[in-house]
Structure formats: C-alpha cells, structure tokens
C-alpha cells in the first residue's frame, strides 16, 4: 500500500459517500445517471468475485464490501425507493449502456493476463469501469447545470483513478516485475474521459458559478 493508492481509495470512498448522502438525506437523485450506477454495480460484482477465494487484507475485504454494498443500494434506491425514484430523470438518462457491456466482455475474452474465469471477469470489470461514466457524462450535458453534490460526486469518482495512475507509477519504480499494461491503459482511458468534465469543474471553482 502506498500513499497514492490510499488517497485513491479514500477519494473513491468519498465519492460513494457523497452520492449516498445526497440520495439518502435529501431523497433526490436529480442529475444522477441510473445507468452509470448499474454499470458500476456490475463492475464491482465482476471485479470482487475473488472476495471469497483470496484474502489480501482486512482493509481490502472491508472496502470491497463497502463498494459492493453501496453500488447495489444506490441502484436499489434509484429504482425502487418511491421518493428517490420520482426525482430520477428517466427521459434524459437514455445512453444505451448495455451496448457497452458486450464489447467489454468480448475484449476481455481477447485481451487478458490469464485465461481463467476469474481473470477474464476481472479484466471485463476494468474495461467496463473505463466507460461506465459515459451515461453520466451524457446526462450531465443534457441537464444544463447540476447541483454541487452531483458535481463533487463525479469529480471524486474521476479523481480516484487518476490517483491510482500515480500509484501504478510508484509501484512500477519500487516493485520489480510490477507491469500491468491492461490495468494501466484502462485506467488512463477512464481518467481521460473526465478531462472535459474536470475542465468545466475547475472553471466553476475559478468563476464561482454552478457547473454549466
């Protein structure tokens, strides 16, 4: 564990807590894409299958349970909780996210580190996570300006993988044989997809306006 990875995990945890805070306290998911949340639930479900077979550390297992529990409960809230579901913007959240799942699965079957069931699903979860934010970014452009909590959620979600890139650089220079091209490229693509959002997000900080 290094400071970059810890900062990345804490940023990721913060993004999930901000979203849960928004949905649980003000009972609103306005501006939040259910489709992105569904993709993230699949990402964690396919990435953490080894939670039962391989024990890394208490921290690792605990965080996996937190991410699994929060992603599925957010989907449940947005789908079935009466008050929250009412604030869900169904007409605008129309990105065909299921079209993202199949190509990621095919790609994982073609490009992976090891051809085993767990490894292919783990690789699939990496590819899927790289594009999971797309429905949310499309929704963002349709609903003109968003509230601060949603903006902070997306900012933290984009930032965590950026910190992971620093973690990979650090591990590359400090651990022999630490080379994971698939993870690095997927993480880089994922972070680059936020570039446009980061630009407007920082403009907001400088200009003090809402996220246009």
């Amino acid at each position: 564990m290094n400071i970059f990875r810890l900062a990345g995990d804490m940023t990721h945890l913060a993004s999930v807590l901000v979203l849960l805070l928004k949905i649980h306290t003000i009972k609103s998911c306005a501006g939040v894409s259910l489709r992105t949340q569904e993709l993230y639930a699949i990402v964690f479900a396919t990435r953490y299958l080894d939670i039962f077979t391989s024990f890394v550390s208490v921290y690792n297992t605990f965080m996996k349970l937190v991410f699994l529990g929060s992603s599925f409960s957010i989907v449940w809230y947005m789908r079935y909780h009466k008050a929250v579901h009412r604030t869900y913007d169904r007409e605008q959240d129309t990105f065909r996210h299921w079209f993202l799942v199949l190509p990621c699965l095919v790609l994982a079957l073609l490009i992976h580190e090891k051809f085993t069931f767990l490894e292919v699903l783990w690789t699939f979860s990496l590819y899927l996570e790289a594009v999971a934010i797309l429905p949310q970014l499309v929704l963002l452009q349709r609903t003109r300006n968003i509230d601060n909590l949603t903006g902070q959620y997306i900012f933290l979600l984009g930032g965590y993988r950026g910190l992971y890139i620093l973690n990979w650089i650090y591990r590359y220079f400090t651990e022999p044989h630490f080379v994971h091209w698939i993870t690095w490229i997927a993480g880089l693509v994922q972070t680059l997809l936020y570039a446009d959002f980061f630009y407007y997000y920082f403009l907001r900080f400088i200009g003090g306006r809402g996220v246009e």
């Binding site: 990721h12 890394v56 690792n60 965080m63 090891k114 490894e119 992971y164 993870t183």
Partner: peptide, 10 residues
C-alpha cells in the same frame, strides 16, 4: 504481499 496472480488493488 498477496499470492502471485491475485489482485491486491481494489
């Protein structure tokens, strides 16, 4: 660290 091949990152 973790057994070879397992992923130790989240």
């Amino acid at each position: 660290d973790t057994p070879k091949g397992f992923h130790d990152e989240l």
